[in-house]
Amino acid sequence: MSHQRLVLEFFARNGQRPLPSGPEALAVRYLDDGIIDSLGIVTMVSEFEEALDIRFSADDMQSYEFQTVGGLIGIVDRLAARS
């Protein structure tokens, strides 16, 4: 499964409402838009780490990139490439 699909499927399963379809989804600030709540982040990160055997650092999670769906996919790509 591609990392993009993994991330989008997480939001499809756990989101309070669906992400927009197509490229628009990548720009969504999932916490600002109430797609998931702050505690949902811990669940989300744990799920990606387990699925891909990666580890998000505190800096990754506090970065601007982490705030959008597209940025999140970028971080997952980078971490997975390293692992």
Binding site: L31, D32, I41, M61, F66, Q67
Partner: peptide
């Protein structure tokens, strides 16, 4: 802060604490 990921605003103590718990400690 607007939410726990908001890095642009310092936020009050409770918000900073919540951010630290969730993003650094990953604790409830």
């Amino acid at each position: 802060k607007r939410n726990v990921l908001d890095a642009d605003r310092f936020g009050n103590f409770h918000q900073q604490h919540g951010r630290h718990m969730v993003l650094v400690k990953r604790a409830d």
